[in-house]
């Protein structure tokens, strides 16, 4: 199973990168065959990605939400899944290339930084032994995925060559991501009160999650009031996702704290 996971992660990486390339090329030359192939590769990658998550669950006996590697795997998978589901209802295909590229880059970070952890199993530390773990981390993973998708949608608006996407879809995604991030923060606070004795410690992860929450909160207010130019609000969504990534990577590597296991 360990070798299988190792092989799958490379296949997933290939599928996502190839899909991104085909989407980009197909869009540029208006080739619908390329777009179909790109969609096929994205679906195949998404299924194999799910297989890795299932194998990881079988290996550890708990859902893959307990460390940095598992979170990155889950959050990048939800990003692709969310895109695939959303594109069946909304016309967001012009952002497909960007979204697949973001997912490919996230998975490549797994390969570069944490491939040796893929088959590593360690028992949960006492602080993580709580039913709150699942809801706290799942809501964060889906929120991050929504923000990744929103950033992809916002980014392609700056390339006028393709079709444009209505900003309302970005707003919808940020709104959903914001609701889930709020849930994740509150549920995390409830859990922290039990585990650490305080619901808010200004731990770096908490602080940066709050900073992320603030930029999206400001976006949601100013987008509705239409006071700010569209490009400014799009930049906020892209910077917001940058903050999401910093909350995940930067805090883990640069600002150690209570969340040092994630």
């Amino acid at each position: 199973m360990e070798t299988l996971m190792d092989i799958f992660i490379y296949v997933v990486l290939f599928c996502y990168f190839a899909s991104a390339l085909l989407y980009w090329g197909g869009g540029k030359f208006h080739n619908s065959m390329a777009a179909k192939a790109a969609l096929g590769l994205a679906i195949l990658g998404c299924i194999l990605h799910l297989a890795i998550l299932v194998m990881r669950t079988a290996l550890t006996g708990v859902l893959p939400l307990t460390n940095g590697l598992e979170f990155l795997l889950s959050f990048s998978w939800v990003t692709v899944l969310l895109y695939l589901l959303m594109q069946t209802r909304y016309p967001i295909q012009p952002a497909a290339g960007a979204v697949m590229l973001i997912s490919a880059l996230l998975v490549s970070l797994v390969v570069i930084l944490m491939r040796d952890q893929l088959s590593a199993v360690a028992p949960l530390m006492p602080a993580l032994k709580s039913p709150w773990l699942t809801v706290h981390v799942i809501t964060a993973a889906v929120a991050y995925a929504a923000f990744a998708l929103a950033a992809g949608l916002a980014a392609v608006q700056f390339f006028p060559a393709g079709q444009s996407i209505k900003d309302d879809y970005i707003y919808l995604l940020v709104g959903g991501g914001f609701a889930l991030l709020s849930l994740s923060i509150v549920l995390g606070a409830v859990w922290a009160e039990q585990a650490w004795g305080r619901y808010w410690s200004w731990d770096p992860k908490e602080t940066w999650a709050l900073i992320t929450w603030i930029i999206y909160a400001i976006y949601l207010h100013v987008y509705r009031s239409r006071d700010w130019p569209a490009n400014t609000t799009r930049w906020m969504v892209i910077i917001g996702f940058g903050l999401v990534l910093f909350t995940f990577f930067g805090v883990n590597y640069l600002l150690p704290g209570l969340h040092s296991y994630a």
Binding site: W202, P204, T207, W208, L210, I211, I214, I215, A217, I218, H221, V222, L254, L255, G257
Partner: peptide, 20 residues
Amino acid sequence: LFLLFLIGVTAAVGSSVLPG
């Protein structure tokens, strides 16, 4: 919103310069 922005900026700078 401006206050929120200030809190965000202060927290960002603070967590790097004066963590804890």
